[in-house]
Design a protein around this nucleic acid. Sequence first.
DNA 1: AGCAGAATGTTACCCACTAACATTTTCACC
DNA 2: GGTGAAAATGTTAGTGGGTAACATTCTGCT
Lengths: 173, 173
Amino acid sequence: MLTVALELFAEHGYDGTSVGQIAARAGVTEMTFFRHFPTKASLLVGDPYDPLIGAAVRRESADLDPISRAARGIRSAWQQLPPPASIEVRMRLRIVAQTPALRAAMTGGTAATEAVIVEALIDGGTGQREAAIAASAVMAALNTALLEWSLADDEELGQAINAALDVLVDRHG
Amino acid sequence: MLTVALELFAEHGYDGTSVGQIAARAGVTEMTFFRHFPTKASLLVGDPYDPLIGAAVRRESADLDPISRAARGIRSAWQQLPPPASIEVRMRLRIVAQTPALRAAMTGGTAATEAVIVEALIDGGTGQREAAIAASAVMAALNTALLEWSLADDEELGQAINAALDVLVDRHG
DNA sequence: AGCAGAATGTTACCCACTAACATTTTCACC
DNA sequence: GGTGAAAATGTTAGTGGGTAACATTCTGCT
């Protein structure tokens, strides 16, 4: 179904493709589509790594300021991951980058990861407010970096992520 | 219509209130509602200050790193604003804070402000990528701060904003 | 072959939102 | 004070995303 959907999105764009069309080309009912995917947007935006990131943030020293701690945690979580199939990921993110509704859905879709980071920071002694602010800022930077990366050719994803976090952490003014 | 909507949201929640109900209680047709408000969410999330913020960011020294520049711009823009009717604003934001769909819509709703900040940063010599990342991080922090503020009692809004930006700028680790 | 449970289909519905066209209200000008 | 144009509102009808309840077909296992 995902493959079929990506084809149609490439042909007619995200908004120009209805769930009915996807289901039809997949030889299936609209109802069946919604049994496999909770929403149309979930074809493109997901939140796969939250527990890993939570643990990684917790592992960083509680002496760091919350931004640094969250950023370091994400960097280290990233290194533990198997490198994803970049081309697939890039295709998906490109569609997200070009569709305003999906950009918004993306930040909604990382709410779970954000919550996990907030919890980890709080457990490390950071106040609730600071934790929420730091987590949302770091996740926003990360999401923006992913979208920007998707629009470029021939760049390493890990590198783009590091560069994004550096904008927050290693500020050279 | 706004007043009526807020009543209904208070009674049945945002998701539990349909546009039809709002229109009916306002003595008006659903169609008329959509002529006044582009979307249901626009009753609660808006983006009123983008040009002001863009100008303020541009006014800050281009020698600063992008995060500092954006943050200082927002602080200064804030001081120029007439203090809003805090109670109203708080009520609205509380509903947003409690409704996941609206939280996502809020970040979508500040896309214009974000774009304006990005442009200002680029004009100051920051690269496209860095500018996009810094702007999204700062706006995310700001939005989070607004939502957290709305859930507290008796706090100055300006103070909450300053504290949020300090998490990004004056990091004490 | 026969059965249980999973996957799929059918129908019917709700809600946000849009388009096209008709109707009423408002208000400035004669 | 009437008139006519413009603005606001109403009507009808439709699209697309998403859900609920119930019926049907497949699947795999014994």
